[in-house]
Design a protein around this nucleic acid. Structure first.
Lengths: 196, 196
DNA sequence: TGCAGAAAATGACCATAGTCAATAAATTTG
DNA sequence: CAAATTTATTGACTATGGTCATTTTCTGCA
């Protein structure tokens, strides 16, 4: 017989996540080691993996928290400038860390691992689609394509720009970043305003 | 004083790569363990890391070989159908394996790690740009955006579709894959032919 | 209340990527 | 050619993610 989840389990999970949050604050996503997490949370190693299938799923849960908080106030963009502002905001969050890019690549697709990150991305796409749809009715964006398709295509540009921004870990990082910034603008505009 | 690279070193490198190739053939990218590689190549563990900064760089080198061979015959697409054929071909290669997607996310940007994979992607983008430029002169694609931008945006769609296709490791894999396939078509067409 | 069984937690243990001081093999130089 | 120097290789060692049989704690029920 399957019994209900005990409060103890939820408390443990929360302690693990809280520990992870603290560690990330000081060491970043890449600097998080499971050993540190369980020590800080006061649990055994095995407990960690009884709650999260692997380190990446744990990080994804934390990332979803962070991004969720940052993107909570995201509203459907109203105009050209609004779209570019929104995209840039999301892009900056995504490009913050190499691990962020890797986690998004692994978990952000449709039917993701269901740990929150995928749902968060879906939500962002929906917001963008709302904005696009509204602009389509106003004739500011071509109407021959579904707003959902355009919105997802925009997200693809954001992902790609974020990945590009992180690829240049050697060489002139500033130049690579600048190129990625510009790339996002150009690609997104090409998608929504193909005629200028 | 800096002396030239010894033939011995190149031979060792080749043995490592050859070993990796064989292993991948039977076990796939994900199944490759460095221990197996060095054993098969008849070298020590340390030698492996004296040649490749980490496992991923090694895999990237091998992946570049494979993709390079597969994409050697890629020509600039001539028309609408040609573009979609090319994109689909690249997409299928990228979506072949979870590790492939991860490696591309890490190494394929501009100023990548310089181990061949990044150059390969640049080459593919150039080919696409050629095709796009030719179609622009014929008026089959809008001319207000640089062909390089459009080409890179197309690659972003391919990356995203490939990532999406791999996200659904649980659930109905076939349905997830089908969705990713369609997504690529829709997003790419929206980019090049916004008016239908 | 106490017992059967399920859920949760444990930590010793394993797998594997990656390091580095030591050694061997080339190459230059006098 | 022998010593000096640089390049290449080695393998024992570390770091860390992840497993699993065992133990502990909780829950429902007679």
């Amino acid at each position: 017989m399957t019994r209900k989840v005990q409060a103890r389990r939820l408390a443990t999970r929360d302690r693990l996540l809280a520990a992870g949050r603290e560690i990330i604050l000081s060491s970043g996503l890449s600097g998080l080691r499971t050993e540190d997490v369980v020590q800080r949370a006061g649990t055994a190693k095995g407990t960690f993996f009884a709650h999260f299938v692997d380190r990446d799923h744990f990080l994804a849960a934390l990332l979803a928290e962070t991004l969720g908080a940052e993107l909570a106030g995201l509203t459907a963009p109203q105009d050209r400038e609004g779209v570019m502002r929104s995209l840039d905001r999301i892009y900056r969050l995504f490009a913050a860390d190499v691990e962020t890019v890797a986690l998004l690549a692994r978990f952000s697709g449709p039917a993701g691992a269901g740990m929150g990150l995928d749902r968060l991305i879906c939500l962002v796409v929906e917001r963008l689609a709302e904005g696009v749809a509204r602009m389509q009715t106003r004739g500011e964006v071509g109407s021959s394509r579904a707003p959902e398709v355009l919105a997802e295509a925009l997200m693809a540009q954001v992902f790609h720009a974020a990945a590009s921004a992180q690829c240049g870990l050697h060489g002139d990082a500033g130049a690579v970043r600048a190129r990625a910034d510009q790339l996002l603008v150009d690609m997104s505009e090409a998608l929504l305003w193909p005629d200028g």
